[in-house]
Amino acid sequence: MSFLSVRDLVVHFPTVDGVVKATEGLSYELDRGKTLGIVGESGSGKSVSSSAILGLHRGTNAQVSGEIFLDGVDLLKINDESIRRKRGREVSMIFQDPLSAMHPYYTVGNQIMEAYRIHHDVSKKQARARTIEMLERVGIPQPDRRVDDYPHQFSGGMRQRAMIAMALINDPGLLIADEPTTALDVTVQAQILDLLQDLQREFNSAIIIITHDLGVVAEMADDVLVMYAGRAVEYGPTKEILVHPEMPYTWGLLSSVPDVVGDTDAKLIPIRGNPPSLLSPPPGCAFHTRCDHRDKVPGDLCRTTVPELTPARAGGNHTKRCHLANPDEVYATEVLPEIAPETLEEQG
């Protein structure tokens, strides 16, 4: 079994208007030293499914089912106290906005020390020394001085570094990074991504990086999981998915994002319409309302039947959730010429 193994995870939120189906039957595997990128738009369930690993929905009215095995233990079966002991020690999390993720009234050092002392019975002095060491490791200049600063005295990039220090101070096996660089400038984003990769090599941790930015995934992740309306719609090795995407939603993501290289005349082909409501997702394939290729599927299949996650033609462990019979052909003849004519020429 893999280090982390999520099987058929379901997260539902009952509301007065009905049940919000935030995550439906999500499964994935992740080994130590590897990175999984979860891509999707807001409301696709990517954050919700990951907070379920830490049991952050406990104590709310969320209904969580399925299995989450971390190092052989099913995190959904153990009690509240046991999961609390695992938080921060075996699984850590960093968030999108490091300013609001830190308590404004306590010093950065205080908050990192707290994270250490929850799981280690050490004196304040030892915890402080360890905190300074960790701040130095994540690249904060003059850590012995900055440890007593408040979060607002840090720049955005430094705050995210401090959050990383807090998350990794107990050397957890799994780090969940929820949009860790979305709020940061592009050069700072590059620094933080580099840092995460360096630390991953050093600590041999597994990383889940949640993002809407395929570029970040392309640089960081070994595997990609594309989510749409609470379901995985495409899952497999990053390179495989970026070169041979098989699901029209993934095509849409690729074709709607402008690039800094390549043809300046390339068109942006947006995905039409809006993301569906998780309260009443469309029947059949949730993406069919926005899909340009649904008419290529015979009958009413897309409108009536949720496609299974099946192996892609490219083979290997690349799976997709789509009824299209010949996605490779459609992609090569219809999508690629529109979005990246130059890559076709290169390939001859």
Partner: peptide
């Protein structure tokens, strides 16, 4: 150079 790039990485 800091912009992560899908095509390049692919």
């Amino acid at each position: 150079s800091a912009v992560p790039d899908v095509k390049q990485a692919a």
